[in-house]
């Protein structure tokens, strides 16, 4: 114990810690333009910086909550939780990492699936929770996504994906790798039935997730400046031993190279996806006569 702690007791320090916590909840700084932003405003702008337009990480629930109509909403596969088939342990046990991620995010794994409506158009939406172990895809993510596809098949609706993932979950090794094949195979069924699949790749969408479900959209969309690719920039730099070009693997780079159909600002996502989906599904809202 230092002399300061001795004379002041622990009260002073804990009061300081509390003090630091309070403003953090109210104000936050944009990593991109360094502007100090009001938290409540950021929630209204869906975590997009009102000053520079930087798209910050948004939770899967917040995403779905904004995207879907308030009613009806049915969550799918939330009874599914991860297991540790390989008794995997690196510097820490996989089971410990799971527990910590569950406590931090209040999710059981890294994908949330809901059936609902978008301006009355019925659909199934799947969203990755990036804060859960980097949105990595293991058995639960694969199975939940398939259940989302199956629900879309059963109800004859489109499927939308919001991807945000570092790739396959190493702690489940080959089980994870095979989720790439599993999710892709399910999407083949959706394609056979002529039901649209729209993939929205948000920052970041990499590795096994980008190289399977996320790149298989009938329409592939990205959020501004999202990092999207197969290999991570660090791995590529080590392999080719040269500096990567400016903007490499960013949404704008992908648009220029023809990998994606369009870039959509998160604040316009709802409106734009509705416009596209209503055309693809020949959806005509039932208009009730006003007088």
């Amino acid at each position: 114990m230092s002399w300061l702690e001795k004379i002041s007791g622990s009260k002073l320090l804990s009061a300081g810690a509390r003090k630091r916590n309070v403003p953090e909840g109210l104000w936050t700084k944009c990593e991109s333009c360094q502007s100090v932003l009001y938290r409540a405003e950021l929630e209204r702008t869906l975590e997009v910086c009102p000053k520079c337009g930087a798209h910050r990480t948004i939770s899967a629930r917040q995403r779905l909550d904004h995207f879907l109509d308030a009613e009806p909403r049915i969550e799918l596969g939330n009874e599914l939780g991860p297991t540790d088939p390989l008794k995997f342990r690196d510097s820490r046990k996989y089971t410990e990492r799971i527990k910590e991620a569950q406590a931090d995010t209040d999710e059981r794994d890294a994908l949330v699936v809901m059936r609902g409506q978008l301006n009355g158009l019925p659909l199934v939406v799947t969203a990755f929770e990036f804060s859960f172990m980097g949105g990595s895809m293991g058995s639960v993510v694969g199975e939940k996504f398939v259940r989302g596809v199956n629900a879309a098949l059963e109800h004859g609706t489109p499927l939308v994906l919001f991807a945000a993932s570092g790739g396959a979950r190493m702690q489940e090794s080959l089980f994870s790798l095979l989720q790439m094949a599993k999710t892709s195979a399910a999407l083949a069924k959706l394609a056979e039935r002529g039901l649209p699949f729209i993939s929205v790749m948000t920052h970041p969408t990499m590795g096994g997730v980008s190289a399977s479900l996320a790149m298989l959209g009938d329409i592939n969309i990205a959020e501004p400046k999202a990092l999207i690719g197969f290999a991570g920039p660090r791995v590529i730099e080590q392999t080719v031993r040269q500096k990567l070009p400016e903007g490499f693997q960013r949404a704008e780079f992908l648009l220029e190279h023809g990998h994606i159909d369009m870039i959509i600002d998160r604040r316009e996502m709802r409106e734009k996806l509705y416009r596209i989906l209503s055309m693809m599904t020949h959806f005509a809202p039932t208009i009730t006569a006003q007088n």
Partner: peptide, 8 residues
């Protein structure tokens, strides 16, 4: 393909 995976 659908059988791949273990979950609770």
């Amino acid at each position: 393909l659908m059988s791949y995976g273990t979950y609770d």
